[in-house]
C-alpha cells in the first residue's frame, strides 16, 4: 500500500509481521499488540526498529510504558466510520507526547485527510492506485479550523487571540 507522508508517496521501510510469521533477519517491523506482548524480548534484541499496530479496540495507554521503543504506532480504522483511532491518535500526541510516526491504516478515505492530519497522524497508508495528486486535492480543504487539535496548526481561536493582542 502506498504510504503518504507530507503530501508525497514515500518508500515504506516497515514490514508487517503477522502473529505466526517468523521474524525477518533485519529491517524494521510492525507487530500486533499480541505479538509485542509475547515476543517483546526477541523483538527488542533484534537491534532494528519496532513498530506496533493497534486495533481500534486497543489503546495507546495499554503500551504507555513501551511507547519510547516504537518508531511507528499504526492505528487502525476497521471501517472509516469507526472514529476511535482519532481519539487514540490525539492521546498519543497530547497526553503521551509520542514523537514518532503515527500511521493511519485500514479503511482510509481522502475525504478524512483533514481529520487524520489534525488528530496527529503524519503517515497514511492510502489505497493501491491512489496518487499523491488525488490526496493533494483534499489537503487544503479547510484553511483555518475553529478549534485547536494535535497538529499545532493555527486555528481561529488562537488567531483571534493574536489579533486581539495586536489590537486589531
Amino acid at each position: 500500500m502506498p504510504l503518504l507522508k507530507q503530501g508525497a508517496i514515500v518508500d515504506d521501510p516497515w514490514v508487517y509481521v503477522g502473529d505466526d510469521d517468523d521474524l525477518p533477519n533485519g529491517g524494521p517491523v510492525i507487530v500486533t499488540l499480541k505479538r509485542w506482548r509475547e515476543d517483546r524480548d526477541a523483538l527488542m534484541a533484534r537491534g532494528t526498529q519496532v513498530g506496533i499496530r493497534l486495533t481500534s479496540e486497543q489503546t495507546p495507554g495499554q503500551v504507555e510504558d513501551d511507547l519510547r521503543h516504537f518508531g511507528v504506532v499504526a492505528l487502525e480504522f476497521p471501517a472509516f466510520t469507526d472514529g476511535r483511532s482519532y481519539s487514540n491518535a490525539r492521546r498519543l500526541r497530547d497526553r503521551f507526547n509520542y514523537p514518532g510516526e503515527v500511521r493511519a491504516v485500514g479503511d482510509i478515505l481522502r475525504d478524512q485527510y483533514f481529520q487524520y492530519h489534525r488528530c496527529g497522524f503524519d503517515a497514511i497508508e492510502i489505497k493501491d492506485g491512489e496518487t499523491a495528486a488525488d490526496w493533494a486535492r483534499a489537503t487544503s480543504i479547510i484553511t483555518t479550523p475553529y478549534q485547536p487539535a494535535s497538529d499545532g496548526a493555527d486555528n481561529v481561536l488562537s488567531l483571534r487571540q493574536r489579533r486581539a493582542a495586536a489590537g486589531g
Binding site: 472514529g83 482519532y86 481529520q115 488528530c119 479547510i142 478549534q147 487539535a149
Partner: peptide, 13 residues
C-alpha cells in the same frame, strides 16, 4: 457551535 464545527476528532462518533 464554533468548537464543534468540523471538529476533527468527533466526526465519526
Amino acid at each position: 457551535r464554533q468548537w464543534s464545527t468540523l471538529h476533527p476528532e468527533f466526526s465519526f462518533l
